[in-house]
Each structure stands twice: as C-alpha cells, then as structure tokens.
Design a protein around this nucleic acid. Structure first.
Lengths: 177, 177
DNA sequence: ATTTTTGGTTGCGAAAAGCAACTTAATAGT
DNA sequence: ACTATTAAGTTGCTTTTCGCAACCAAAAAT
C-alpha cells in the first residue's frame, strides 16, 4: 500500500505516529521495556516477521528511540536498548495497556500487573491532571492555538466549547451572510 | 500486505493496538475529540482517503469507540461521536501529543496548547504515578504476572529487575546445567 | 423541480506485511 | 584447530491494504 507520511504535518500527534504508529512498533517498544535486547528474542516473543522486525528496529534507531549497541566492541552483532526518548514513551505504552485492561480484557483478566516497587501497590491509572494535581476530565480541558500554530490551526479554534468538551470552530460561510 | 490480528493475543497492549493501532485511527479519534462529527469534515481535515475513512469509522463503531448517530431520526446519514470508551482514549492521545511536543516539534513549536479551563494554566505532563500521587520513573515500576496471566507470561517474569527497570527472565537452559 | 452537498462505494495500481529460504559472522563444542 | 550451531539479518515471492480518483444515491438547498 502507498502509505502517506505525516512527517511534514504541523501536528505533534501526526509526528509521533509517523515514528511509532506503524504496525508492531509499539509492541517492540514494550518488549524493549520488558528487557528484551536481542533480535531473536524480539522475534520469538512477538512472532513478527524477521524482515519487518529488521526494518522497524532500523527505523527506531534512526529516530533515536532505540540505541544500537555492539555486543562486543567492533562486533557487527548488536543489542537494542531504549534511549531516553524511548523510555519517555513508556508512559504512552502504560496508558494504552491500562486502557486495554479496562475496556477489552477486563481488569480481572489483566495479564500483567504494574506495581509501585516502593510499596508493592498497583500503580495509579494514568490520567490527565492540572498542574496542581487535580484530575481533569475532557470538559475541564481547553484547547488553544499553541506557540507553533499556523493559520489553519488558529482558524479551527475558538473559545466556544461543545458539550463533549471539545472545540467548535466558527462556521465562517454562515457568519459572512 | 498480510496483516496479523492481535485479537486473540493475551496482551492488553496488543488488544488495544488491534483496535486503534492502524494507520489514521488515532488521528480520527483526536479529530473526534476536537469536535468533528461529519464524514466530510474528518475527510477534509485529515486528508484521508474516503474509503479508508469509511472503513476506519466502521471499525471504530464496531469496537464501540465511536457511536454512529443518525443526523435526524430514521436518516441514513449519520454523525460520529466518541463513546465513553473512546473518550477514555483521549488520555493516550494527549500523552502522545505531549511526547511529540517534547521530542519532535520542540515545546516552543507546539501547535496546540491544552489548558486547565479552571485556571487557564497549561495542563500537567501526563505521567505514571503511584496511588499516593508520587511520580514514578521506570525504575520505580515493577512488573508481575497479573490475575489473567498464563504460563507464557508467568515464565517471563521474575523478581529480578534490570538496570532499566524492566524485568529479566530466567535463562532456564543455563539453570538446568 | 433541479442542482448541490453529503456520505459513502467501486476499481485500480502501488507499496507494505507475511512467509520461508538463504547468507554471513560470531560462539560453542570436541 | 576444525566443525557445528546460533544469531542477526537479507532476499525473493505472495498477499493484503492503502491512496487515488471516479462514481452513486439520498438528503438539502435553491
């Protein structure tokens, strides 16, 4: 299939998806987070085709999400480890795992538990919060053009908020009349 | 391409990705969160091919992430709105947008700002926390087999944690010797 | 009543994902 | 030291899905 790249789109989500939105990529990252380093282990744990795995790893390394570390200096064989940028993605992975636990598997069928190692307790549900720590629902979040907004984006946002908490844009053709 | 389905995999992340991991799907959800309801608006805002959009919407409705609402009772035309399950995904979308802002666009180029409507302040960075609110780094999170774990998963987890905070599994063939 | 818009569907070509066999370099065994 | 095995990919082929553009029917507007 001809697949569009979002690389030139002015949108953080599109940019992110351009790096990690492909089939398998997020599972590879989770696997790396679980401690997998070796090509064969990624392959056997995930059941991914080897050529696809090779391509994904290469892309993740190119995007500085994984780091390719020679297994011994000068060796052609290497291991793959998460970079800082990659480790920062684990938040997203965990949010998605928790969503799956809540809505698909059911919490009582969650295959893995994530615990706070200090207390042994389950970690909290990842959620959106205000700076002071208050959990925010969708209604509590406002959207505005950011510092890097272009006209297209600025056009879409007004102060008006719909009942789902999202932004309603001005219907210009009707306002002109 | 022949694409594997994760639907029968015993893994929340795979299950989640089976629903939302396809090309475009998360952008459609973001768009719905921004308030878009109509087919044509999804199409023109995202620039997605119409047949692909139709397929994605159908799949999202089948998975109860979007709801198809007839525009007037009995009409064949419909609008699409996020369900509760879909709205719960916005956390993931926001986490991913923030990651893109941090690592790809750069915070100063963020095209949209998300603010706490009560205060007008930027929302906090989505992060993993303990039940008592402490932010947790990767090292602070322990992984254990959950209530729905099967043998394959149980085999992979031990109490040993590597320096990246992830789990190291027992190397059984060496232990047997 | 006729035109325009909306919400799709159909058909085609291209590129990506799956499968399996092959290759080459590093390790292990004797 | 020599051979066997494993690890880490690569190559070639097939299948499936995505992107594009044209088409179609129902609803709305004029």
């Amino acid at each position: 299939m001809k697949r569009i790249s979002f690389a030139d789109t002015r949108c953080s989500l599109a940019q992110s998806l351009d790096m990690i939105g492909e089939w398998w990529t997020l599972l590879i990252i989770r696997e790396a987070y679980f401690g997998t380093r070796r090509f064969s282990d990624f392959q056997s744990h995930l059941g991914i085709a080897r050529n696809v795995l090779a391509e994904r790893l290469e892309r993740l390394v190119a995007n500085d999400i994984l780091q390719r570390v020679p297994v011994s200096p000068g060796s052609k064989r290497a291991h793959y480890r998460l970079t800082e940028k990659g480790r920062d993605l684990v938040t997203v992975v965990i949010a998605l795992v928790q969503w799956g636990d809540r809505w698909v598997m059911g919490p009582e069928n969650a295959p893995v538990r994530m615990v706070d190692r200090a207390t042994g307790e389950d970690i909290d549900t990842v959620q959106v919060r205000a700076k002071d720590g208050r959990p925010l629902g969708l209604h509590d979040i406002g959207l505005e053009p950011g510092p890097g907004a272009d006209d297209a984006i600025r056009d879409r946002f007004s102060e008006a908020i719909t009942d789902t908490g999202a932004v309603r844009w001005r219907i210009r053709r009707h306002m002109a009349a």
